[in-house]
Design a protein around this nucleic acid. Structure first.
Lengths: 360, 360
DNA sequence: GGCAGTCATGGAAACGTTTCCACGGAGGAC
DNA sequence: GTCCTCCGTGGAAACGTTTCCATGACTGCC
């Protein structure tokens, strides 16, 4: 592998000059510029990243620690984050905590060793001390999707209360009064916020306060199955269910489907997180759209701001509601054109500075 | 940030000794060991990765360049690869080519600069020269999921012909004779292999050879919509369709749903790639199970073998077929227990040495 | 008891960059 | 014509490790 020394020698300049040309930092003469560039080209020179990082004590790498890469919400978030990072000259090192605090700790250590420039994390929440340590170490830090009580870090998250309100209002409008809730883990902010919002708005709207309607899982599909089964076994008689996460919605749907007494249509499902197959099941599942792309993009933006010395603030990303009550899976009709737009995962490379809906 | 120099000073040993203790390479006395370990602990010493990489010219980082992280097949593959890499002491740098050769090239450059120890890639196929250059640079390289003609690199891929055979045999057994095929891009090996297998097995089984039954997309959902629409518009009258990829199956289902004349049930869908919601639609979608976990795991295994000087061979991973014809979504019955296992994404941390089905 | 061999250690070189410092030359102002 | 300034350059130090080499002490054997 060619080094900058080889390039300098071939170009007939000193090593320092070669470096100045290649990193473009300082003034260089047009002549040296041309010679060095040509030499680098000829030798297929690619700068040694570790050496550069060592000297500059910057790596131009961002860490992204998500909770579960197989959760479509996070894979979309990761995709957006990576794209935005690349646009800003950074590379993303992606790691997957698998909803496990120990794994999270292991990756935190790896990241520290790699000397990444900043960390985007969807924290597990359970390990406050370790996160404190990370923050105190001075590593630029931004939370995405989730926050953690007792630690003040810029956070890009969904407006959970707003999303729950949209869902419950819609259900209420459709006549539902017995609405079950399958929430997330209480130790994670998205879990507790959505649950708190559910309780409050449920009461505002005068929905049933039967405690047997409440259950929670861990944001994985299997836990959705179990939570829904528990509700059904409790003796409660929900006519609808709000699931607090896309993967859990998958589980909820499975659980309802296996229940002999109630067909998949008998209990209406609404999901926090919109998945691309919701319009294909019968009846279609309406959902709160949770904008993972905006969160990923804004998260990287905030992180880079911090790294480069600009201030960064927490933001809440707005939700929207996708009402699929008018569609009917497997049948004809006007639903057609509406449905088609579902499949197109739009991905505009341009829009980036100020994304869809983002409030204070 | 504490350096090894600080640790050595605090422990009262030389820098060399401290390094020997911390990297555990050479013999050290129990006394130094204890003192250095204690000092490192006290100073919260974390080795500087770039410095270590510079000196050892190894980074212990693997690159994983997938085609589309939002495709569940690849997020599962990435998850498995990351897990296996961690087990073997490596970190994975994940990048997303977005099914785009230019993006792929950009990441290849980034990886080269980072001096990763090895690269796992699902190649776009179009850019033979660049891949040749990578291979010739001596970087350990393994292809996953896809191979590229004209370049000899160990490849871990699905037994595509086997999978297509399972699907077509099953369809044939159910009486279908007019089977449409929505394939992938001809320039990508999974696209061409599955198509070639379709044509051959179609003829073996005596299925209709109507060319209007053939279409192809680019492994993204929207292209599945378009391909299916094209088949329907051609005048062909398929009774079933085989989709060559999970995301395209999503598109195919959307396209069938929007077609007024044929309800979602009228044309039976079979998918190459099994997604977790297939049993929820009506009728459920049967599928060839494409074992992304095994591919990710074996890919990392092969790559690490190469890196560490052991030989590595290409492998084909077996498929299996998930027959959901007995299940009926949204209704009661014996389908219940079968369905429940669908939602549980099993993930055994132990099994790793020789995974599920892998032949020569 | 002396000598060879082993073993832990300290010191220093090396990895490939970036950046500081000093220097020389060109150009402008007087 | 001289002095000052500015600009481009070469040389060298520094980043934090690992590893080579030499040295000194200790063990064990004859």
């Amino acid at each position: 592998m060619a080094t900058i020394k080889d390039v300098a020698a071939l170009a007939g300049v000193s090593l320092g000059t070669a470096s100045r040309v290649l990193s473009g930092s300082s003034q260089t003469s047009p002549d040296s510029r041309a010679r060095v560039t040509a030499a680098a080209e000829q030798l297929k020179y690619i700068a040694n990243g570790p050496a550069r990082s060592l000297r500059r004590s910057r790596t131009e790498v961002l860490g992204l620690l998500v909770s579960d890469i197989r959760n479509p919400f996070f894979s979309e978030l990761a995709h957006a984050a990576e794209r935005e990072a690349q646009r800003r000259g950074y590379t993303v090192l992606l790691a997957n905590a698998d909803e496990d605090a120990a794994q999270e700790a292991a990756y935190l250590r790896t990241f520290a060793s790699q000397r990444i420039d900043g960390l985007l994390i969807a924290p597990q929440g359970s390990d406050l001390t370790r996160l404190q340590a990370v923050r105190d170490s001075g590593l630029p830090l931004v939370f995405v999707d989730r926050s953690v009580d007792g630690i003040d870090v810029p956070t890009i998250s969904t407006d959970n209360a707003d999303g729950v309100r949209r869902a419950l209002t819609w259900l209420h409008g459709r006549g539902h009064r017995e609405v079950a809730f399958v929430g997330g883990p209480p130790g994670i902010s998205t879990g507790s916020e959505r649950r708190a919002a559910f309780l409050q708005i449920r009461d505002e709207l005068g929905l049933s306060a039967d405690p047997r309607l409440l259950a929670h899982g861990d944001f994985r599909a299997e836990s959705g199955v179990e939570a829904m089964r528990a509700v059904l076994a409790s003796g409660a008689r929900p006519t609808a269910v709000l699931s607090a996460d896309g993967l859990m919605t998958l589980g909820v749907a499975h659980a309802l489907r296996e229940e002999p007494a109630r067909s998949l249509g008998a209990i209406e499902i609404v999901s926090f997180d919109d998945l691309d197959w919701f319009s294909l099941v019968s009846p279609p599942i309406s959902a709160v759209r949770n904008d993972a792309t905006a969160i990923g993009r804004l998260g990287v933006g905030a992180l880079v701001d911090i790294i480069e010395g600009r201030p960064a603030a927490s933001r809440r990303v707005e939700t929207s509601f996708v009402d699929r009550s008018g569609e009917a899976a497997g049948s004809a009709g006007s639903a057609g054109s509406a449905a088609s737009s579902d499949a197109a995962a739009s991905d505009d490379p341009a829009a980036s500075d100020d994304p869809a809906g983002a409030g204070a």
